[in-house]
Structure formats: structure tokens, C-alpha cells
């Protein structure tokens, strides 16, 4: 089973000096946080705010590459969580064939936002995540740790 997720916002994790992308499902009952690097967070933030930078950033270039060859992103799926590393799959069409390409969730999300493609998560990933130390960690967060994107 897969669940469609929406990017609700980005947070800074001061303990790990990293960023967290918050994914939530339609009825806001499930949450999936994904730790990403600074440049990936910046790329996702630009896409969320629909900011077009003066020069194409890496994921804009990635989208440009796919556009140039008429490949289309159908969807992305966050598939697995293994030793705190997430796995994602990008589903694309190119010349009437479908392809599935392995990626990091950060790249998949950054590309999906630029392609208006839906983001899904395997239910096993969501369940694993909620059962881990995350709940406690989130309780300790202050509202000011949340970015302005969490509207």
C-alpha cells in the first residue's frame, strides 16, 4: 500500500545541523520526516516557494534534462527506510516506455515538486518512522524551529 504525501514544510534540525522535510498525508494523520542536506533543502524550498533562481539550480537542470529529451516524471515513491537512509523510486515515461530509477528521497521530492508529480510513501516507511524516536524528538522542538513554509 502506498499513501500520497504532501510537502508541508522544512525545518532546521539544530542537533544534527541538517534539515528535515515534513511530508504529511491528505488527512494529516500520518507524518513522515526526511532528513536532507543543506543544498537539497534549499532546492526543495525554492520549489515550494516557486522561486525561479537567475540560473538553473541542480534540480532545475535535472528537470531541464528530462524536458530536453521529452521524459516525464509520473510519480515518486519513498520506498524504504534502512538504517536511517531512505530510498525512493522515480517513475518516468520516455518514448512510450516506463522507467523506474533509484534515487534519494531528497532528489525525488525536489524533482517531483518541479514536475507537478505526486509524491507517495510506502506505508511500511511511515509506520517505521512513527515508531522510532521521532515523536519524542518532535515534542522537544519549539515552534520557532519550524520554518515559515509550514503554513
Amino acid at each position: 500500500m502506498i499513501t500520497q504525501m504532501h510537502v508541508k514544510g522544512l525545518m532546521f534540525d539544530p542537533y544534527n545541523n541538517a534539515y528535515i522535510v515534513i511530508l504529511r498525508d491528505e488527512d494529516q494523520s500520518e507524518m513522515l520526516p526526511i532528513w536532507v542536506g543543506k543544498s537539497e533543502a534549499s532546492s526543495i524550498s525554492l520549489a515550494l516557494e516557486s522561486v525561479a533562481p537567475p540560473r538553473p539550480m541542480t534540480h532545475d537542470f535535472m528537470k531541464g534534462y528530462l524536458d530536453a529529451v521529452n521524459a516525464k516524471v509520473i510519480s515518486v515513491v519513498i520506498t524504504d527506510l534502512n538504517e536511517n537512509t531512505y530510498y525512493a523510486k522515480i517513475h518516468l515515461t520516455y518514448e512510450d516506455s516506463e522507467y523506474t530509477v533509484d534515487s534519494r528521497p531528497s532528489d525525488a521530492i525536489a524533482l517531483a515538486l518541479r514536475s507537478q508529480a505526486p509524491i507517495f510513501a510506502n506505508e511500511s516507511v511511515i509506520r517505521k518512522q512513527t515508531s522510532e524516536e521521532l515523536d519524542q524528538w518532535l515534542e522537544n522542538l519549539k515552534p520557532e524551529d519550524f520554518g515559515k513554509l509550514d503554513s
Partner: peptide, 19 residues
């Protein structure tokens, strides 16, 4: 790297498509 980085992913698109 254990996971494909952004430019590895672009390369991977090319390999899948034959571009």
C-alpha cells in the same frame, strides 16, 4: 557514495533512456 547523489541520478536517467 552509498546512495546516488544528484548528478549520479541525472547520469542514471541517461543510462536508462539511452541518452
Amino acid at each position: 557514495t552509498p546512495r546516488p547523489m544528484s548528478h549520479d541520478l541525472i547520469k542514471s536517467f541517461g543510462e536508462h533512456f539511452g541518452v
